[in-house]
């Protein structure tokens, strides 16, 4: 019964929303303040040192949308990796929910909806910060970029959640952060153009999902986006998000109904 399943997923979502009520003010402040400070520091510091344009833009204009995508990855990691594992092990939120009529797939779906919401809010806050620096052309562009960053986050969040629910403890999550997330963060074209990388590494960077997210956000922000590449980027990211969701349905069932 799909209809029933959706309603059930909303019950799981209700939990996360209720929890969020206590902390949302803080997260919004952090989500806006962090990028403002980041952009301020780069604009006032590194930006003044980089005299040549990068990919045809000032360093700040080049860097900001890249960081937006990278921040989405980071948020996806926290919400989809850390929080998911904690909900399973330390706080035992999932096992508690699994003892009710909720099915594992519904618990997963409910949490995913919440994660999507969180990613969207954080991305939106970031885009507002960018607008303050005059880096967003119009409201329409702002909305599209927010959606692109949310999609980038989801492409990581669902596979991460699918895996995090099988991880033994938080230290495994931290290992993935260090050895997977950090390299992606630094070498997917966020801080500098991947064209600066030596050949085999550049191709490698071009395959990483974060680069697709970065390039999608950046070309949209700089007004250099064209339909073909943008569709490829979005399709690649959406494919990952869907694959993660499908795998997650299986892994959630395995760990919650073991």
């Amino acid at each position: 019964m799909t209809g029933g399943g959706q309603v059930m997923a909303f019950r799981a979502l209700a939990y996360w929303l209720m929890r969020y009520r206590r902390t949302w003010q803080g997260t919004i402040v952090v989500s806006v303040a962090n990028p403002i400070l980041f952009l301020l520091a780069i604009g006032a510091g590194l930006g003044t040192l980089v005299q040549e344009p990068v990919e045809g833009a000032s360093y700040l204009a080049f860097f900001a949308p890249g960081l937006l995508a990278a921040a989405a990855l980071q948020n996806a990691f926290v919400e989809g990796g850390f929080v998911v594992n904690s909900a399973l092990r330390r706080e035992r939120i999932y096992p508690t929910a699994a003892a009710t009529p909720l099915e594992p797939g519904e618990i997963f779906a409910g949490h995913l909806i919440f994660i999507t919401l969180r990613l969207f809010i954080s991305a939106g806050a970031f885009v507002v910060a960018m607008a303050l620096f005059g880096l967003i052309e119009s409201v329409a562009v702002g909305v599209v970029i927010t959606l692109a960053a949310t999609l980038t986050g989801l492409a990581f969040a669902t596979p991460l959640a699918a895996w995090a629910v099988t991880a033994r403890d938080i230290s495994q999550i931290n290992t993935v952060f260090r050895f997977v997330v950090m390299p992606l963060y630094l070498f997917s074209g966020t801080f500098f153009s991947i064209a600066q990388l030596p050949e085999p590494l550049e191709t490698l960077a071009r395959i990483t999902p974060l680069w697709h997210g970065v390039d999608l956000c950046r070309t949209l922000a700089l007004g250099t986006a064209s339909l073909g590449p943008s569709l490829v980027h979005a399709g690649y990211l959406a494919g990952l998000a869907i694959a993660g969701a499908l795998i997650g349905r299986v892994t959630f069932r395995r760990s919650l109904h073991a």
């Binding site: 040192l49 980089v50 005299q51 950090m182 070498f187 801080f191 990388l197």
Partner: peptide, 25 residues
């Protein structure tokens, strides 16, 4: 390994990437 991996990444990112951008400071 944990403590060395991150610095390697950072140094690479600085050396190859940002270092290439800023030139003379």
């Amino acid at each position: 390994l944990f403590s060395i991996f991150e610095p390697i990444l950072y140094l690479l990112a600085i050396g190859v990437g940002i270092g290439g951008l800023v030139g003379d400071v």
